[in-house]
Computed example of a mutant assay.
Amino acid sequence: MTPGRERGLTALLCAAGSGLALLAAGRTWVTVRAGDAITPVAQSVSGRDLGGTASALALAGLAGLAALFATSGRVRAAVGALIALFGGGIAYASALAVQRSQVRSAVADKSTLFSLNPHPAMDVNLWWMVSVTGGVVLAAGGLITLVRGARWPGMSARYDRGTPAASGEDRTDAEPIPDEPAPSDVDPAVLWRSFDRGEDPTASRDGRP
């Protein structure tokens, strides 16, 4: 596999990890039911309701993709380390968000009925695991960048060079300067007026034959 292709596949890996985390953040992670309350109620809680850390780190991971292509060498390796930290943070924040204390705090902010029930029933689905998976995938992409990124090519340098005229290079594709028109191409009336003035119309402007 060429270094350029390896860089592209790693970027796709990072994008997939961030995308999974962002997708999961908008889905319902926990459904809480307060059956012992005066009025039995149920409340669905999304990943963003439980905390915006995971989605914020996923957006930071997407922003790191631009730096992955724009940098090179050790700077790119440092970017890879940051992306790996973002992925690890997503996985940790997602697992922490579904803890009972965190869920109770989130639903209490939505309805006071849940704060009156000390033991509400909680149904946790698998969307939080999707977010954890996204964090792991993003972290893997960051680690690959940390280890292998210094070998990958940077952005194309052809746009960093000046134009041939500005850099002093000869232009091979420049259009040739048109030659002086041949006497046969000159209007006969012009030739006649030149004869009247005593001029030789076959001579060039600089006096050379």
Rank of each mutant, 00 (worst) to 15 (best):
103 V>Q: 07
96 L>N: 14
93 A>Y: 09
150 A>L: 08
90 I>G: 01
69 F>N: 02
110 K>S: 03
129 M>L: 15
175 E>M: 14
174 A>D: 02
84 A>D: 03
167 S>F: 08
177 I>M: 11
94 S>W: 05
103 V>E: 03
100 R>Y: 01
112 T>S: 08
119 H>N: 13
179 D>Q: 01
69 F>H: 12
125 N>F: 07
144 I>P: 05
115 S>V: 00
105 S>Y: 02
80 G>A: 08
85 L>C: 10
170 D>F: 12
143 L>Q: 03
127 W>T: 07
168 G>T: 04
94 S>A: 15
179 D>F: 00
73 G>Q: 10
99 Q>L: 12
107 V>H: 09
180 E>Q: 12
168 G>H: 00
101 S>I: 11
174 A>I: 01
85 L>V: 12
154 G>S: 11
125 N>L: 04
102 Q>V: 09
110 K>G: 00
180 E>L: 10
181 P>M: 02
138 L>E: 08
83 I>K: 02
107 V>A: 10
156 S>Y: 05
96 L>A: 15
86 F>Y: 11
76 R>F: 06
159 Y>H: 09
147 V>I: 15
151 R>P: 02
81 A>I: 13
133 T>W: 06
174 A>S: 08
133 T>D: 07
122 M>F: 01
174 A>R: 09
158 R>M: 07
166 A>R: 10
111 S>D: 14
141 G>M: 08
131 S>F: 08
102 Q>S: 13
171 R>N: 02
69 F>C: 08
